[in-house]
Design a protein around this nucleic acid. Sequence first.
DNA 1: CCCGGACTATGACAGCGGTCATAGTAGCCC
DNA 2: GGGCTACTATGACCGCTGTCATAGTCCGGG
Lengths: 202, 202
Amino acid sequence: MTAAQTPRRGPRERMVFGAAQLIRRDGVASTGMREVAAYAQAPRGSLQHYFPGGKEQLVNEAVGWAGRYAGNRIDRFLAALPTPTPSGLFGEMVRQWTEEYETAGFAGGCPVAAATVDCAESTASTREAAAAAFGTWTASVARALTDMGVPEDRAGALATLMIGALEGAILIARAEQNVRALTSVARELGPLLDAAVVKDGA
Amino acid sequence: MTAAQTPRRGPRERMVFGAAQLIRRDGVASTGMREVAAYAQAPRGSLQHYFPGGKEQLVNEAVGWAGRYAGNRIDRFLAALPTPTPSGLFGEMVRQWTEEYETAGFAGGCPVAAATVDCAESTASTREAAAAAFGTWTASVARALTDMGVPEDRAGALATLMIGALEGAILIARAEQNVRALTSVARELGPLLDAAVVKDGA
DNA sequence: CCCGGACTATGACAGCGGTCATAGTAGCCC
DNA sequence: GGGCTACTATGACCGCTGTCATAGTCCGGG
């Protein structure tokens, strides 16, 4: 789980990745630059070399990295599903988190949520990076929904609902140290999502 | 909106209230004790007097205060609704946030979410306080749902879904500085909630 | 050989954080 | 008044933070 397990990538990428991991765990404000360097097994001097924009730049890149990473994962879920349904997609998105929490513990949440909570008011660029991440996910999910037969005028809102419910359930699960919230949300929201599919029986 | 507008309460309560407000805005880690005292117009020396447990105690009380406050608000919504429906309740919960964002801006989020993000891994007692707050809300909403005719075995999960979707939508709305996520979630989830009501037409 | 760029290595600095220690004031009860 | 408790007032301490400055290493190219 440590960044050292991905030594293939260069130090710069390791630091961005490590920053995302530490932000996931402790939030943005409690994550120090020196800590990121140590975690990524990167020299401290590289911080100002690769990130002349300081912590703000590093955090923003970490948020962007997380956004791209999770976006790709959504697309991979879609490719892997034999018969794509909204509930199937949502179930996979939720399952990713329940599995992590059950095997690795409740140490980490969503780094984009952490960035939003900690920086939305203080750092405009980070807030925008978080908004971009949410937007990427929403667009991906919405496109998937339309492909499954959900009317276009509802796909966007339903995608937002899915991501919002997932983020909220992550919060609750982490506070309770219990995946109950995640499984409850998946179980209740799944069927409702499938009902939005317009069956073209003609 | 400042704590100074509630000078009726004693300094201790003002500090707890002020801490919740500042945590809402900047997160737990970025909120300093001196800042809380200044915001609450309370003497700095009162901090160690009223909160010998230090910042941890103050934060925990702020989270507890927020939990009780929002819990009471839910109960008030229920009492005010002429014909209680799940979508009506959820709409009121969402409306509270859209109104704040539209009139006062997107400065603040949910303090319980902030505490969860910042302290879930580092401070066990704060994580428990956040879990208690979520639990209070869930219990309140679940009881309301059963009163409306939702089967008991689904009421809890649906309550979790409602609170989770709301928390997630708050996050997204704040990141985007746009209430779109909140209105989308309310519009899509509302009807689905009403469908869970068992109509006793007998 | 040696220049120049990319990267690394430290050290220092100024600021702010929470916390402790100590002293001071106000007011009430005996 | 004496003494007690509740509360206020400051100042100091130490650790940590992000950032800057400076020097160092490494290595390919002329």
